[in-house]
Amino acid sequence: MITVACYNIKGGVGKTAAAVNLAYLAAQGGANTLVWDLDPQGAASFYFRIKPRIKGGSFSLFQRKRQLDDVIKATDYPRLDLVPADFSYRNMDLLLEQQRKPGTRLKKLIKPLRSEYHFLFLDCAPSISLVSENIFAAADVLLVPTIPTTLSLRTLKQLHDFCAAGDYAHLTVIPFFSMVDRRKSLHREIVDNRGGILEAAPRTYIPYASEVEQMGMRRAPLDTYAHASWAARAYRDMWQELQPRLLARRRAG
C-alpha cells in the first residue's frame, strides 16, 4: 500500500479535491483505493454523500476499541472506499497526546489495511500539529497542493524545512500547482519558472475552474460529471504523471 497524504498547512488550496479526484482515478485504473477523511469539516465525506460520522467517534479508534476496518464505507464507485470524517477529529491532538508513542498512532491504525488496498489517500485538515506529525510518520508521499503565490511558496518552504528537521527521511514531498489562474501574471510567472523545491512538482497543474467548485453541488468526483473539462483532464494527466512515481516509491520502500 502506498499512503499519500494530501496536505498543506494552509486551507482552501484544493486538498480535498485532489484527494477525491486522484483516488477516484486510482480506483478507475484498477487499484483498491481508500480515502481517509481526516478533516473534521468532512468535505471528502460530503463529496461521497457519506455521513461524516464514525461509530464511537475518533475516541474509539484511538483507544484501540475499534479497528479502522470496522468503519470503512463503500462509495458508489467500484474499488473506492472511504473512512468518513467525524466531528470529534477536531480534538484529535488531545486524544493523541494521551497515547503511548503519540507520534505513530495513525501509522499503527492503518497497518492492518496494507494488504487490502493499493493506495490510501489521507485528506488532512490544514494545520501543523501532533496530527501532522502522525501524518508525516504514516505517509509515504506528501502531496502538497500549492497556489502559485508568494505566501503559499513561503508555507511550502516552511513545510519542507519542518520535514527536513524532523525524522521523516522516508517521506517524499511532492508539491503541485493548484487553483492556477493564468489570467494572473504572478501565477503565470511562478508556474512557468519553477525552481528549487518546485522542481519535484508534476508538469501538469490544476487550473482554477468552476467545474471543480461544482463538486460541492454535484457531490461526485469531477470525472463523473465533467469528463471533458480542462480541470478533469488536468487531474487525469497529473495522475498519469504521479502514478509511476508513487509505484517507484513503493518498490524503493
Binding site: Q28, G29, G30, A31, N32, P78, L247
Partner: peptide, 21 residues
C-alpha cells in the same frame, strides 16, 4: 480484483495494464 478492460484484448495476463488484477 477487477479492472475496466476487455480481457479479450489481452492474450496474456502480462499484456493487461499494471494493476492488482
Amino acid at each position: 480484483a477487477s479492472l475496466a478492460v476487455d480481457v479479450a484484448d489481452a492474450r496474456f495476463a502480462s499484456s493487461l495494464p499494471d494493476s492488482a488484477l
